Lab assay of single mutants.
Amino acid sequence: TFELKGKVGKVVKIAEDHYLVESEGDKWIAYSDEKLSLGDRVMVVDVDGLKLKVKRIP
């Protein structure tokens, strides 16, 4: 299986209740415990079905 946990991506869209993150050339629906901005670099900390939980990284 394709393992996304630990992968790095970038926030490419902000929606009302989720983010769109591009990682490894694909776009994924993501959510975070912190507020993210367009262009933020993020790391995948968990995968919930087809949704990614991400956190901001420097």
Rank of each mutant, 00 (worst) to 15 (best):
T1G: 15
T1M: 15
T1L: 14
T1N: 15
T1K: 15
F2T: 15
F2Q: 15
F2K: 15
F2C: 15
F2A: 15
F2Y: 03
F2N: 15
F2W: 03
E3L: 02
E3Q: 02
E3V: 01
E3P: 15
E3K: 01
L4Q: 15
L4N: 13
L4E: 15
L4K: 14
L4C: 15
K5V: 15
K5H: 14
K5T: 14
K5D: 15
K5Y: 15
K5E: 15
K5G: 14
K5M: 15
G6R: 00
G6F: 02
G6W: 03
G6Q: 01
G6P: 00
G6N: 02
G6E: 02
G6V: 01
K7T: 06
K7R: 13
K7A: 14
K7E: 05
K7Y: 04
V8Q: 06
V8C: 11
V8G: 03
V8A: 05
V8N: 04
V8K: 06
G9I: 02
G9Y: 02
G9M: 15
G9E: 00
G9V: 15
G9L: 14
G9F: 12
G9W: 02
K10I: 07
K10P: 03
K10H: 08
K10F: 10
K10W: 12
K10M: 09
K10G: 06
K10N: 07
V11M: 02
V11F: 00
V11T: 04
V11G: 00
V11R: 00
V11A: 02
V11L: 06
V11K: 00
V12W: 11
V12R: 07
V12M: 11
V12I: 08
V12A: 06
V12L: 13
V12Q: 05
K13S: 09
K13R: 13
K13M: 12
K13T: 07
K13A: 09
I14Q: 06
I14Y: 09
I14D: 07
I14E: 09
I14T: 08
I14N: 06
I14A: 10
A15D: 09
A15S: 08
A15P: 04
A15Y: 07
A15K: 09
A15L: 10
E16Q: 10
E16F: 12
E16R: 13
E16V: 08
E16N: 09
D17M: 12
D17Y: 13
D17K: 10
D17G: 08
D17S: 11
D17R: 13
D17F: 12
H18E: 11
H18D: 11
H18C: 11
H18A: 10
H18L: 12
H18Y: 09
H18F: 09
H18N: 09
Y19H: 03
Y19I: 07
Y19D: 01
Y19S: 04
Y19A: 07
Y19N: 02
L20Y: 13
L20A: 06
L20Q: 07
L20I: 11
L20H: 12
V21F: 15
V21W: 15
V21T: 03
V21Y: 05
V21R: 01
V21H: 00
V21L: 06
V21E: 00
E22P: 00
E22N: 05
E22G: 04
E22V: 08
E22S: 05
E22M: 06
E22I: 09
S23M: 15
S23Q: 05
S23G: 06
S23C: 15
S23V: 15
E24Y: 03
E24G: 03
E24K: 02
E24W: 03
E24T: 04
E24S: 04
G25Q: 05
G25T: 04
G25W: 04
G25L: 05
G25M: 05
G25I: 03
D26E: 09
D26C: 14
D26K: 11
D26R: 12
D26P: 03
K27P: 04
K27S: 10
K27W: 06
K27F: 09
K27Q: 06
K27I: 10
K27G: 05
K27E: 07
W28F: 12
W28A: 02
W28M: 05
W28I: 05
W28G: 02
I29K: 11
I29F: 12
I29Y: 13
I29Q: 08
I29G: 07
I29R: 14
I29L: 10
A30L: 02
A30N: 00
A30C: 14
A30H: 00
Y31K: 09
Y31G: 06
Y31C: 10
Y31T: 09
Y31Q: 10
Y31A: 07
Y31D: 12
Y31F: 10
S32T: 05
D33V: 12
D33C: 14
D33N: 11
D33S: 13
D33Q: 12
D33F: 13
E34Q: 07
E34Y: 06
E34P: 03
E34W: 05
E34F: 05
K35Y: 07
K35M: 06
K35L: 06
K35V: 07
K35S: 08
K35D: 05
K35G: 07
K35P: 07
L36G: 00
L36H: 03
L36K: 00
S37D: 08
S37L: 11
S37T: 09
L38F: 12
L38S: 07
L38C: 12
L38H: 07
G39D: 13
G39T: 07
G39N: 13
G39L: 13
G39P: 01
G39Q: 11
G39K: 07
G39M: 11
G39C: 13
D40M: 13
D40T: 13
D40I: 09
D40L: 09
D40C: 13
R41H: 09
R41W: 06
R41C: 14
R41G: 11
R41M: 11
R41T: 09
R41Y: 12
R41N: 09
R41A: 12
V42T: 04
V42L: 02
V42N: 00
V42Y: 01
M43V: 14
M43C: 14
M43Y: 06
M43F: 08
M43H: 04
M43G: 03
M43P: 00
M43D: 04
M43S: 05
V44S: 02
V44H: 01
V44T: 02
V44R: 01
V44E: 02
V44Y: 04
V44W: 04
V44L: 02
V45M: 13
V45W: 10
V45I: 09
D46C: 05
D46P: 01
D46Y: 03
D46N: 03
D46L: 03
D46H: 03
D46S: 04
V47N: 03
V47M: 08
V47F: 09
V47S: 03
V47D: 02
V47I: 08
D48T: 12
D48W: 13
D48N: 08
D48V: 13
D48Y: 14
D48L: 13
D48P: 02
D48K: 06
G49L: 07
G49N: 09
G49P: 06
G49R: 08
G49V: 08
G49S: 07
G49C: 08
L50F: 13
L50S: 07
L50Q: 09
L50A: 09
L50E: 04
L50V: 08
L50Y: 14
L50P: 05
L50W: 14
K51Q: 08
K51Y: 13
K51N: 09
K51S: 13
K51R: 13
L52Y: 02
L52A: 04
L52G: 02
L52C: 03
L52F: 03
L52H: 01
K53Q: 11
K53V: 04
K53R: 14
K53T: 12
K53D: 04
K53G: 05
K53H: 09
V54P: 00
V54K: 00
V54Q: 00
V54N: 00
V54G: 01
V54Y: 01
V54I: 08
V54F: 02
V54H: 01
K55M: 14
K55Q: 13
K55I: 14
K55V: 13
K55N: 13
K55T: 14
K55H: 10
R56S: 06
R56K: 06
R56E: 03
R56D: 02
R56N: 04
R56C: 05
I57R: 03
I57V: 07
I57H: 10
I57T: 08
I57G: 04
I57M: 12
I57A: 08
I57D: 11
I57L: 10
P58I: 12
P58G: 08
P58Q: 10
